[in-house]
């Protein structure tokens, strides 16, 4: 996994609440068995008209946000289905950081498995981002090490993040390899701790 320590990027805004993963990546694209190549299908029903043409009104289709790698989104971003394809699509499209006042749980987890940093900014910090929503500002830097978002005019907004996940992202670590170091504990658990209903019947 590609590590993420400090990222400077262009910002795109999606000013809508409760964007669900069915919108991020519609179901017809979940049939693929690959992990890559979902970028072209990101926000498909919003991005393209029914006849397949580009929807020129959709936020991400505006010329000035092409090449964006930081997404500012609304409350409860990524709600609904657990489909990790949603993160794969965002990542494949080019997003490394998503900033929102809140995220849905499963989506939030899935981000960390794919080198995407979800940043939660609320209240005052969130309202500092207004110049981006107005289109007056386009660039920012996210520093995961320092847990800071550097916005326009040198202003710095700090954010909270779970230390374990932060480290995984900074080092680009493979979760499974890390867990296998605990194999002895897992074996011990299987031998000793199990309640009767944990046995396998059939």
């Amino acid at each position: 996994m590609e590590p993420l320590v400090r990222h400077k990027g262009k910002v795109a805004c999606l000013n809508r609440v409760n964007v669900d993963t069915d919108q991020v990546i519609p179901k017809q694209f979940l049939k693929r068995i690959e992990r890559s190549g979902y970028g072209p299908f990101l926000f498909y029903d919003w991005r393209y008209l029914e006849n397949g043409e580009v929807n020129s009104e959709f936020e991400l289709n505006q010329p000035e946000v092409q090449g964006a790698s930081i997404l500012l989104a609304g409350d409860n971003f990524g709600c609904g289905s657990s489909r990790e394809h949603a993160v794969w699509a965002l990542r494949d499209y080019g997003f490394r950081v998503i900033i929102a006042p809140s995220f849905a749980d499963i989506f939030y987890n899935n981000c960390f498995k794919n080198g995407v940093l979800p940043v939660t900014l609320k209240g005052d910090s969130w309202s500092r981002l207004e110049p981006y929503f107005k289109g007056n500002e386009r660039w920012m830097t996210v520093d995961l090490e320092r847990q800071e978002v550097e916005i326009c005019d040198g202003m710095v907004l700090s954010f909270e993040i779970d230390p374990h996940r932060k480290q995984m992202l900074i080092e680009g670590l493979d979760d499974i390899g890390l867990t296998l170091r605990y194999q002895r504990f897992i074996e011990e658990y299987e031998q000793e701790q199990r309640a009767p209903y944990q046995k396998v019947y059939g």
Binding site: N109, D175, I186
Partner: peptide, 22 residues
């Protein structure tokens, strides 16, 4: 509870998951 595909792989390989307590 529901999990993403990376976690599916993690459970397949280790029968465990890292979780913070809700």
């Amino acid at each position: 509870f529901g999990i993403g595909t990376s976690e599916v792989e993690h459970v397949l390989a280790t029968q465990c998951l890292w979780q913070s307590k809700p």
